[in-house]
Simulated assay, not measured.
Amino acid sequence: MKDNNFQLPASNFQSKKQLNIYFTAGIPQLEDTTEIIKLIQNSGADMMEIGMPYSDPVADGEIIQKAHELALRNGMTIAKLFSQLKSIKNEIKIPIILMGYINPVLSFGFENFCRECSESGVSGLIIPDLPPIEFEKNYREILAKYNLTFTFLVTPETSDERIKYLDSLSSGFLYAVSSSSTTGNENKSINNEDYLNNLASLNLKNPLFIGFGIKNKKDFDDVTKKANGGIIGTAFVKILLENENWKEKASDFIHSIIN
């Protein structure tokens, strides 16, 4: 079984660029989650984010919102997701990050949630609507107790001072979204060169991952010229939602990015 904690080399842009694949738990069918997890690992991705379905995913674009709605209709819950993860935890060697909104986690009980993460082979969390001050005051020690990393997000509008502050709080990696828009927005440029150059110059303590808007190998190669890795979500979820033979297409998609 993998060690829950993970670290990547923070400023070593000569090393292999890390591919992080996001999908929403409970789609296309409720019991497909474990198959998708194994597919992502076996297709060569370096890590994965699993979205916990929520009824009001305000930071997500249309495709991932549809995925949340479908997953909830399918009956996906946090408890169900933990049960699925436990069933395959000894087979999974790459890091699993759970991503979601704070309200369902608080409803589950934060420490109970972290305990279940630890017992399910989860490496860390991304909760975009958890304020950093609340994180420092109420949650950081609990995460450390269960050996879980926590990742904060920054945008092109985030000041250098705040980027460094969020980097100091983060562990695992720092998530740099390509704009302050929602996920999957086709009207934004993912390769904001000034933004990426500035991030690369800040001597961050965590590895830097770029997300939101990466759709193909060219996008991935472009953003990882100045970052340790890239995160692909909407393009992958779209395959799961729109293709009956999603297993083959999803595997081919991941291979197309890393080969």
Rank of each mutant, 00 (worst) to 15 (best):
F150M: 10
E134K: 10
N243G: 10
I210S: 06
N112Y: 05
E49V: 07
E244F: 08
E62A: 14
M52A: 15
F6I: 07
F135C: 14
Y165E: 15
Y101F: 08
T182G: 03
W246S: 07
I37R: 07
N203I: 02
T151Y: 13
I214W: 08
K66M: 14
G229V: 10
H68Q: 09
N103F: 05
L199F: 11
N103C: 03
T155L: 04
D194K: 06
K137T: 11
F110M: 08
G230Y: 11
K80P: 01
S189Q: 11
E157K: 14
V177W: 01
K17V: 02
L174G: 03
S256H: 14
L143T: 10
G172I: 10
N243M: 03
G211V: 09
N138R: 08
I21E: 08
T77S: 15
G61C: 00
Y175L: 08
S83C: 06
L19V: 11
L202F: 01
E193P: 00
I102K: 05
N74S: 12
K38S: 10
K226G: 06
P128M: 03
N12D: 15
I96Y: 02
M99E: 11
N138Q: 13
I257V: 15
F6Q: 04
V105H: 04
L30N: 11
S168Y: 05
F173Y: 15
A10Y: 13
Q14G: 10
L39K: 02
N185S: 04
D46V: 12
S159W: 14
D160C: 09
E136N: 10
P128W: 03
Q65F: 00
R162K: 09
I142L: 14
Q7A: 04
P57T: 04
T149C: 10
L70S: 15
D160L: 06
V122H: 02
M99C: 00
V58Y: 01
T151F: 14
T77A: 13
L30F: 13
N20S: 15
L125W: 13
T183C: 07
G51T: 09
L8P: 00
V223Q: 09
F212W: 03
V58K: 05
I257G: 06
E49A: 04
W246Y: 14
E161G: 12
E62L: 13
E248Q: 15
M47D: 07
G184E: 01
D221T: 12
P95V: 04
M99W: 04
L196T: 07
G75K: 00
Y165V: 01
P207L: 06
F173V: 05
S178E: 02
F113W: 00
G100A: 09
N192W: 01
N147L: 00
L72H: 14
E31W: 12
K217M: 05
N42R: 12
N198C: 10
K17P: 03
N243W: 00
I163Q: 02
I94Y: 06
R73I: 09
S120I: 07
E161Q: 12
E193I: 08
I36F: 08
L81G: 07
V58I: 14
E186K: 09
G184Y: 04
